[in-house]
Computed example of a mutant assay.
Amino acid sequence: MSAPQTALNVYRAIIDEFVSKTRHYGSSSRVADSGLFSNAPDHEKFNNFIETLTPSQRELLSEMLQEERDSAIHDILASLSEWIDCQDVGLTYQGKPMPVDLSGMGLHGDYVGRRDGWEWPSQKESGDS
Results as ranks from 00 to 15, higher is better:
22 T>V: 14
68 E>M: 15
115 R>S: 08
26 G>Q: 10
124 K>W: 08
15 I>E: 00
35 G>I: 03
122 S>L: 10
26 G>D: 10
100 V>T: 02
128 D>M: 09
70 D>Y: 10
123 Q>A: 11
104 G>M: 12
3 A>S: 13
79 S>K: 11
119 E>M: 14
102 L>K: 00
24 H>G: 15
65 L>P: 02
57 Q>R: 14
122 S>C: 11
12 R>W: 02
57 Q>K: 14
31 V>D: 00
71 S>P: 04
42 D>P: 03
114 R>C: 09
84 I>Q: 01
67 E>C: 07
57 Q>P: 05
62 S>P: 04
90 G>H: 08
127 G>E: 08
61 L>N: 02
33 D>S: 11
128 D>N: 10
88 D>E: 09
15 I>T: 02
52 T>N: 09
20 S>Y: 15
13 A>R: 06
27 S>V: 05
62 S>I: 07
128 D>A: 13
18 F>H: 00
38 S>H: 07
73 I>M: 10
21 K>P: 02
5 Q>I: 08
50 I>E: 00
13 A>E: 08
33 D>Q: 13
34 S>R: 14
72 A>C: 07
23 R>D: 13
86 C>V: 07
127 G>Q: 10
24 H>E: 15
15 I>H: 00
85 D>E: 14
22 T>A: 15
7 A>M: 10
96 K>G: 02
89 V>H: 05
67 E>W: 10
124 K>D: 07
11 Y>N: 01
2 S>T: 09
56 S>A: 13
119 E>H: 13
61 L>D: 01
77 L>E: 00
22 T>D: 11
3 A>M: 12
63 E>A: 12
2 S>D: 07
49 F>L: 15
51 E>G: 10
122 S>T: 15
96 K>R: 08
125 E>Y: 04
55 P>Y: 08
47 N>F: 05
6 T>F: 02
108 H>K: 06
16 D>W: 04
60 L>V: 02
25 Y>E: 13
88 D>L: 06
73 I>R: 04
40 A>R: 14
104 G>K: 12
110 D>G: 01
109 G>P: 02
114 R>G: 06
46 F>W: 06
125 E>G: 03
129 S>Q: 12
119 E>C: 14
57 Q>N: 13
98 M>T: 06
92 T>Y: 08
35 G>S: 06
99 P>V: 01
71 S>M: 12
78 A>S: 13
121 P>Y: 00
83 W>Q: 09
62 S>G: 12
95 G>T: 08
100 V>L: 01
58 R>D: 04
94 Q>P: 01
15 I>P: 00
102 L>Y: 01
80 L>D: 04
124 K>C: 03
116 D>A: 05
116 D>G: 03
70 D>L: 12
31 V>E: 01
12 R>A: 01
123 Q>L: 10
63 E>Q: 12
56 S>F: 06
28 S>Q: 07
19 V>M: 05
44 E>Q: 13
79 S>Q: 14
